[in-house]
């Protein structure tokens, strides 16, 4: 598949040590030259997929408040372990969660936010 071939080639270029901006600019130029610009988004998705497969993306954790990073440290570590994310992770504060946290890694999610539980409670009670 053409898009997949581009994704593999771009991944190999990145692996060889080329700067990401340089690699992606080069990719865009090659696609334009060959008249394959429409494949750009598909190629990028494939590239992200390859990076995920080979464990090179980090987990992402959202908490409701700044202090929850410390108070929920044990639960967050446990969740990341269940998700298979062993490396470093990024943290983001999202007040709309109300409480708890949401951890995402590759295509898996661990959600203990108060928001999702309250939404579920409301929908089940009012069905």
């Amino acid at each position: 598949m053409k898009a997949h071939d581009y994704s593999i080639a771009t991944y190999d270029v990145l692996n060889s040590g080329t700067e990401p901006t340089v690699a992606l600019t080069g990719l865009a130029q090659v696609l334009e030259k060959r008249g394959h610009t429409k494949l750009y988004s598909t190629v990028l998705r494939g590239l992200v997929h390859l990076l995920e497969q080979r464990g090179e993306t980090s987990a992402h954790v959202s908490v409701a408040r700044e202090q929850d990073i410390k108070t929920l440290k044990k639960e967050i570590t446990n969740a990341l372990h269940q998700l298979g994310a062993e490396g470093p992770h990024t943290v983001h504060v999202d007040g709309s969660l109300i409480g708890g946290f949401v951890a995402k890694y590759q295509n898996r999610i661990f959600d203990t936010s108060y928001k999702s539980q309250l939404v579920s409670l409301y929908r089940n009670a009012t069905r």
Partner: peptide, 13 residues
């Protein structure tokens, strides 16, 4: 509320 599961579990998304 009594049946609410607060422990959480991994789901594929």
């Amino acid at each position: 509320i009594a049946g609410l599961d607060t422990t959480g579990a991994v789901a594929e998304s």
